[in-house]
């Protein structure tokens, strides 16, 4: 019997084409690949964080995809795959394995994105405080400039110095 992951991989074009308009850059690609990886590795491994999935999601966020866009893609991948698996797999046990793997991955993705959002909020708060510190420096520089401008204007006006 061929690897279940390989057989699900065959459904790639069908699922990703519908979801992502065929783009190889869509977040859905990373999620689908993670599901295939999970099936190939076997679900007997402990529930751990898939670092490749984590990195792939991190990259999507870094490139500017919103958390919601990735969540939407994950939902659609799950729904399409569940439907395709129901149609394509005859063995109920295999279909259940696919559903479990898909649920593992999309729930992991939700966790990654939720934590990414709180992490981002923390960084934004810190960045806001740093902006306020920078504003203070700029206000002090403005005070000093005002002092020097006043001085220089007076000096140039009188053309006299000690």
């Amino acid at each position: 019997m061929t690897d279940l992951g390989e057989r699900v991989a065959i459904l790639r074009d069908e699922i990703l084409d519908v979801v992502a308009g065929g783009s190889e850059d869509a977040p859905a690609v990373a999620i689908f690949d993670a599901i295939v990886r999970t099936l190939s590795a076997g679900l007997d491994t402990a529930l751990g964080l898939d670092l490749t999935l984590h990195d792939a999601v991190a990259r999507r966020l870094a490139w500017g995809d919103s958390e919601q866009a990735i969540l939407d893609d994950a939902s659609l991948v799950f729904t399409r795959l569940a439907r395709a698996a129901q149609r394509a797999l005859r063995d109920p046990d295999e279909e259940m394995l696919v559903l479990e793997a898909a649920a593992d991955v999309v729930c992991s993705t939700s966790r990654i994105l939720g934590l990414a959002a709180v992490g981002r909020a923390g960084r934004d708060r810190a960045a806001t405080l740093r902006e306020e510190l920078a504003q203070r420096r700029l206000r002090e520089a403005l005070d000093e400039q005002a002092h020097n401008l006043q001085r220089l204007q007076a000096e140039v006006a009188t053309s006299d110095f000690e």
Partner: peptide
Amino acid sequence: HTLHRGFLHSFVAVRST
């Protein structure tokens, strides 16, 4: 030195942004 200090404060403040 006062003028130079003023320039440096502005320079560092702007770079910090």
